[in-house]
């Protein structure tokens, strides 16, 4: 299958930082090195023949229990971008290690990144460098741990008042 314009452009512009690309079921995906995420997103946003002006979604995945096949890096931050002008989407993924789950913040590019990154920190404990106010958003300050990590138990309740069960 022919590679889409976005992936081709990305390869041309950032040959060193693209780890892998694929288009499973038509979803263009580029796995990139985490240090270049902001540059890549800025390029995608500002390049006139791509103009990805929407940060549709930002989330993370914990691959701790993935054994089909196992991953070397534990986390992956996933960005979904969309362009209104050309009506195309792309998914950017950046692997992070367990020892240092840190990535640069996208807040200078999109205002919505602020809350999305806070959610990511809340749920996965991924730190975003350059984020203005990285604190919990869905859970409360007293909560310990990050529930969407695979090693956090489903019923790991931490009540503020009342019994645990």
């Amino acid at each position: 299958m022919e590679e889409s314009l976005t992936l081709k452009k990305l390869r041309e512009r950032f040959p060193a930082s693209i780890i892998d690309t694929h288009s499973f079921r038509g979803d263009d995906t580029a796995v990139v090195k985490r240090v270049d995420v902001v540059d890549i997103c800025r390029f995608l946003k500002e390049s006139p023949d791509l103009s990805y002006n929407f940060l549709m979604d930002l989330t993370a995945v914990d691959y701790l229990q993935m054994n089909n096949p196992p991953k070397t890096e534990r986390f992956e931050v996933v960005y979904h971008l969309y362009s209104i002008k050309y009506n195309h989407r792309v998914r950017i993924k950046a692997p992070l290690t367990e020892a240092d789950p840190t990535i640069d913040s996208l807040t200078p590019l999109w205002a919505v990144a602020n809350w999305l990154e806070r959610e990511c920190w809340d749920m996965f404990g991924i730190r975003f460098d350059g984020h203005p106010d990285l604190k919990r958003i869905l859970l409360y300050e007293q909560f310990e741990g990050h529930p969407l990590r695979k090693d956090y138990p489903l019923t790991g309740r931490q009540p503020l008042i009342g019994p645990k069960n």
């Binding site: 019923t155 309740r157 931490q158 008042i161």
Partner: peptide, 13 residues
């Protein structure tokens, strides 16, 4: 919702 976020019945409170 038997999970980390939800109170298991308000009669506990």
């Amino acid at each position: 919702y038997d999970n980390y976020a939800t109170v298991q019945g308000i009669d506990t409170i």
